[in-house]
Deep mutational scan, measured.
Amino acid sequence: DLRKKIVDLHKSGSSLGAISKRLKVPRSSVQTIVRKYK
């Protein structure tokens, strides 16, 4: 699940930009998912 991957990467200390590059999703999507998770 993409959300879980993003949250896991964020927990392990990756920046939003790094996560978005790695998973090839827009940075804004990463930000939204991380914000919802918090």
Rank of each mutant, 00 (worst) to 15 (best):
residue 6 I to H: 00
residue 8 D to A: 14
residue 5 K to A: 12
residue 38 K to A: 11
residue 37 Y to Q: 03
residue 38 K to T: 09
residue 1 D to S: 14
residue 21 K to R: 14
residue 14 S to K: 13
residue 9 L to S: 03
residue 7 V to P: 01
residue 12 S to L: 12
residue 31 Q to A: 14
residue 11 K to S: 07
residue 30 V to E: 02
residue 25 V to S: 04
residue 9 L to H: 03
residue 7 V to N: 04
residue 20 S to L: 03
residue 18 A to I: 07
residue 32 T to I: 14
residue 8 D to I: 12
residue 19 I to N: 00
residue 28 S to P: 06
residue 28 S to M: 06
residue 15 S to K: 04
residue 21 K to F: 05
residue 21 K to Q: 07
residue 32 T to G: 11
residue 2 L to V: 08
residue 4 K to D: 09
residue 24 K to S: 09
residue 30 V to H: 03
residue 19 I to T: 01
residue 10 H to E: 02
residue 20 S to K: 01
residue 24 K to P: 00
residue 3 R to S: 10
residue 27 R to V: 11
residue 5 K to L: 14
residue 4 K to W: 11
residue 21 K to S: 07
residue 27 R to M: 12
residue 5 K to T: 10
residue 25 V to N: 03
residue 8 D to G: 09
residue 17 G to T: 15
residue 20 S to A: 14
residue 15 S to T: 09
residue 35 R to G: 07
residue 5 K to I: 13
residue 12 S to Q: 13
residue 35 R to L: 07
residue 13 G to M: 04
residue 19 I to F: 01
residue 20 S to D: 00
residue 28 S to Q: 12
residue 8 D to Y: 13
residue 3 R to D: 06
residue 2 L to M: 09
residue 19 I to K: 01
residue 36 K to I: 09
residue 32 T to N: 13
residue 7 V to D: 02
residue 21 K to E: 08
residue 20 S to M: 06
residue 29 S to N: 08
residue 27 R to E: 05
residue 4 K to V: 07
residue 31 Q to S: 12
residue 38 K to M: 13
residue 14 S to W: 15
residue 35 R to P: 00
residue 2 L to S: 04
residue 18 A to K: 07
residue 13 G to A: 02
residue 17 G to Y: 12
residue 20 S to P: 00
residue 30 V to T: 01
residue 22 R to Y: 12
residue 31 Q to L: 09
residue 18 A to E: 14
residue 34 V to H: 04
residue 11 K to Q: 09
residue 10 H to C: 11
residue 17 G to F: 06
residue 36 K to S: 09
residue 19 I to M: 02
residue 19 I to L: 02
residue 22 R to L: 15
residue 15 S to L: 02
residue 1 D to R: 13
residue 11 K to L: 14
residue 31 Q to N: 08
residue 25 V to I: 14
residue 23 L to E: 00
residue 14 S to Q: 14
residue 20 S to H: 04
residue 38 K to N: 09
residue 24 K to A: 08
residue 13 G to T: 01
residue 15 S to V: 02
residue 19 I to Y: 00
residue 3 R to I: 14
residue 33 I to D: 01
residue 5 K to Y: 10
residue 17 G to A: 14
residue 10 H to I: 11
residue 9 L to W: 06
residue 8 D to W: 15
residue 17 G to V: 10
residue 29 S to Q: 13
residue 33 I to W: 02
residue 6 I to G: 00
residue 35 R to F: 06
residue 27 R to I: 14
residue 31 Q to H: 07
residue 35 R to Q: 10
residue 15 S to Y: 01
residue 15 S to M: 03
residue 30 V to P: 01
residue 10 H to V: 09
residue 6 I to F: 01
residue 7 V to S: 03
residue 4 K to A: 10
residue 10 H to S: 04
residue 22 R to T: 13
residue 5 K to H: 08
residue 20 S to C: 08
residue 10 H to Y: 15
residue 37 Y to A: 06
residue 23 L to M: 07
residue 15 S to W: 03
residue 18 A to W: 09
residue 22 R to V: 12
residue 30 V to G: 03
residue 36 K to Y: 12
residue 38 K to Y: 14
residue 37 Y to I: 07
residue 16 L to W: 05
residue 33 I to E: 05
residue 18 A to M: 10
residue 33 I to S: 04
residue 12 S to P: 00
residue 25 V to E: 02
residue 33 I to P: 01
residue 9 L to V: 00
residue 29 S to R: 15
residue 15 S to N: 05
residue 16 L to F: 09
residue 35 R to K: 11
residue 34 V to M: 07
residue 28 S to H: 10
residue 3 R to N: 07
residue 3 R to G: 07
residue 10 H to D: 02
residue 20 S to F: 00
residue 33 I to V: 13
residue 6 I to V: 10
residue 35 R to M: 08
residue 28 S to T: 10
residue 37 Y to P: 02
residue 28 S to F: 08
residue 37 Y to V: 05
residue 12 S to H: 09
residue 14 S to F: 15
residue 7 V to I: 15
residue 16 L to N: 08
residue 33 I to K: 04
residue 17 G to K: 13
residue 28 S to L: 08
residue 4 K to S: 09
residue 17 G to N: 15
residue 25 V to W: 04
residue 34 V to W: 06
residue 1 D to Y: 14
residue 23 L to W: 00
residue 21 K to W: 05
residue 22 R to E: 13
residue 35 R to D: 09
residue 28 S to I: 08
residue 24 K to D: 07
residue 6 I to D: 00
residue 15 S to G: 09
residue 38 K to F: 11
residue 33 I to G: 02
residue 1 D to M: 13
residue 18 A to P: 02
residue 4 K to H: 10
residue 30 V to F: 01
residue 25 V to K: 04
residue 9 L to T: 01
residue 2 L to F: 08
residue 36 K to V: 07
residue 21 K to N: 07
residue 31 Q to F: 06
residue 23 L to H: 00
residue 8 D to N: 10
residue 14 S to H: 15
residue 38 K to E: 10
residue 25 V to F: 03
residue 38 K to V: 11
residue 19 I to S: 01
residue 10 H to T: 04
residue 3 R to F: 14
residue 34 V to S: 02
residue 31 Q to W: 08
residue 21 K to A: 09
residue 35 R to N: 09
residue 21 K to G: 05
residue 15 S to R: 04
residue 15 S to I: 00
residue 13 G to W: 00
residue 4 K to M: 10
residue 11 K to F: 08
residue 8 D to M: 14
residue 3 R to T: 11
residue 13 G to R: 02
residue 2 L to K: 06
residue 7 V to K: 04
residue 6 I to W: 02
residue 14 S to D: 07
residue 10 H to A: 07
residue 3 R to L: 11
residue 16 L to D: 05
residue 6 I to L: 01
residue 7 V to M: 13
residue 22 R to F: 12
residue 25 V to T: 05
residue 12 S to I: 07
